[in-house]
Every structure is written in structure tokens, then in C-alpha cells.
């Protein structure tokens, strides 16, 4: 059996394209949109938009819900939170500590 593609790889791949990031921004501005609605904001074929949405869905950045005959697309920020915790928060902590140390030192001007 082929090695399953790591979720993180799918996530970064999905984020590595400007059109897909634009789709995420569009959903951030207004959630629960149809394919037609999203197509209006992108200068590409309907098929192209569908392919981008499929990739975003595979990376779990977009969740879809059926509403009658329509498929609504929602931004799913949970994987972004995971990236934040895995890749950003740990680098932020030492810097924030250094900054607060600096602030303390600067404020103790009388010694």
C-alpha cells in the first residue's frame, strides 16, 4: 500500500497557490458560498475553481454542506490553528519572553 500523504503536506500544498488563498479570503469575508458565487470573483474557468476547491477540501481547509441542490463551501480554520501551534507559537514564545525582559530592564532606569 502506498504511504498516505501527510496532512501537513496537503495543507502547505493547498496554501502554496494564490488562487486558493484568494478562495480562502473570499470565504473568510463571507462564509457558506456556492461554486457559482465563488466563480464570479475569480478569473478562471468553473472547472479550474472546482479543482482548487477540491484541493482545499482534501486539505480540510474547506468544508462543504449540502443544502437542497446546492453545495455550500465553508472555511475550516482548524488546520490553520494546528499550523499555528506547530510552527508559530513555539518560535513566538522565546521572543515574547525576550521582549518582556527588555521592557522590564528599560523600565528599571534608576538602577
Amino acid at each position: 500500500m502506498a504511504e498516505p500523504i501527510d496532512d501537513t503536506d496537503l495543507l502547505f500544498k493547498a496554501l502554496a497557490d494564490p488562487s486558493r488563498r484568494k478562495l480562502l479570503d473570499l470565504l473568510h469575508a463571507e462564509d457558506g458560498r456556492t461554486l457559482n458565487d465563488l466563480c464570479e470573483h475569480l478569473d478562471m474557468s468553473r472547472q479550474g475553481v472546482t479543482q482548487h476547491l477540491d484541493l482545499l477540501e482534501a486539505a480540510h481547509l474547506v468544508a462543504t454542506v449540502r443544502s437542497g441542490r446546492e453545495k455550500l463551501h465553508y472555511l475550516n480554520p482548524v488546520p490553520l490553528q494546528a499550523i499555528y501551534e506547530r510552527w508559530i507559537a513555539k518560535f513566538e514564545k522565546p521572543r515574547l519572553k525576550a521582549l518582556s525582559k527588555l521592557k522590564r530592564r528599560l523600565e528599571q532606569t534608576d538602577d
Binding site: 480540510h60 468544508a63 475550516n76 480554520p77 482548524v78
Partner: peptide
């Protein structure tokens, strides 16, 4: 207003 959050655990 709706949000849909999905995660795989």
C-alpha cells in the same frame, strides 16, 4: 449565520 468546523481525530 453559520460556521462549519471539521477535524479528523
Amino acid at each position: 449565520s453559520t460556521f462549519v468546523y471539521v477535524t479528523y481525530i
